[in-house]
Amino acid sequence: MTVADRWARGLRLLGALGFAVLLGACGGGDEEPADAGTDTVYPAPNGPASTDRVIRQDYGGYQLTYDCTTHTALQYSYTLGFDNGTAARPTSFTLDPTLPAGCAQQNSASSYAGAIHPGYDRGHLVSSNHMDYNADYIQRANYMTNIVPQVATFNRNVWLDAENVAECYRDLAPVQVYGGVVYSDESNDWFLASHGIRTPEYFWKAIVTTDPATGAAKAIAWYIPNVEGLTALDPYLVSITELERLVGTDLVGITAPAAVKAMKPATSWPLPAGCNYT
């Protein structure tokens, strides 16, 4: 079976399962890039109506559920196609010019490392490398709406490992990526004064795709503490069902059969041989 045949079968199965496959977000397409800044106001997730303004913001290649009051994205989602992108990653971070009027964001695009507490990166939620198939999308991935304080060693190790799973499996079949952050402790909110954002306690990521050999749906997810010293992803494996209990079904935002949501591999998926991480 050719790569094209595997892709076609994967797309058909994802559609049959009811997943929101965003074909415009797949690499290699020649469609005109979507305008950034389309926003729909949603009620705040995980509970009754709130005074916080939570919006769904579309950046073309990815979407954010964003809290205008606390200046942070809560959830993101996007679909990846075969990796043939070469757009260069921007060398700087910028404030987001597309937020609607009255929706606040971080005070600064400067490094967290220069603030009062060392050891934190400007951590991407949506991986910049995943958006390299479109110059506009990769630029938007460096907006501060897509950035939160991330422990530097976490960012450069286990979080990168999770990003690489999506990066590699996208070459086998279309991949849907979901993720977000959880705030639960005020004691480490080092960057409220400098940037106006809290520090997440947990990051989560879920990947849904199809097995190229069988065409069956498969899923994997992690719930990872934003701390020093993590060396492996496996201790943080969860099913999507468990993730929904931890984060909230509405905020996780994955539509899939119960059997897919219940999947919890014994180990993180091994990276396919010959994967190009760039």
Rank of each mutant, 00 (worst) to 15 (best):
75 Q>P: 02
78 Y>D: 00
66 Y>I: 07
71 H>G: 05
66 Y>P: 05
61 G>S: 07
81 G>R: 01
89 R>P: 10
87 A>I: 03
67 D>N: 15
66 Y>M: 12
86 T>W: 13
92 S>L: 13
86 T>L: 13
89 R>F: 10
87 A>S: 14
86 T>I: 12
75 Q>I: 02
71 H>D: 11
82 F>T: 08
82 F>Y: 15
82 F>G: 01
92 S>G: 11
76 Y>A: 02
70 T>Q: 13
90 P>N: 08
86 T>A: 14
70 T>D: 12
75 Q>R: 13
63 Q>D: 08
90 P>R: 03
65 T>K: 05
91 T>I: 12
96 D>H: 08
73 A>H: 07
97 P>V: 06
71 H>K: 14
69 T>L: 11
85 G>R: 04
73 A>I: 03
78 Y>F: 15
80 L>Q: 07
61 G>P: 08
79 T>M: 07
88 A>T: 10
83 D>G: 08
68 C>Q: 01
70 T>K: 11
90 P>I: 04
73 A>Y: 12
77 S>T: 04
87 A>Y: 07
62 Y>M: 02
87 A>R: 03
64 L>T: 00
87 A>H: 02
88 A>W: 10
88 A>Y: 09
91 T>W: 09
66 Y>N: 03
78 Y>C: 03
75 Q>D: 07
91 T>E: 15
72 T>Q: 05
88 A>M: 11
92 S>R: 14
63 Q>F: 07
63 Q>K: 05
80 L>K: 03
91 T>P: 06
79 T>G: 04
66 Y>G: 03
87 A>N: 08
74 L>R: 04
77 S>I: 01
82 F>D: 06
80 L>E: 03
94 T>N: 13
85 G>F: 10
74 L>N: 02
82 F>W: 14
95 L>N: 08
93 F>Q: 00
84 N>H: 13
82 F>C: 09
83 D>W: 07
89 R>S: 09
78 Y>T: 00
84 N>T: 15
93 F>A: 01
86 T>M: 11
90 P>A: 07
86 T>V: 14
73 A>T: 07
80 L>V: 02
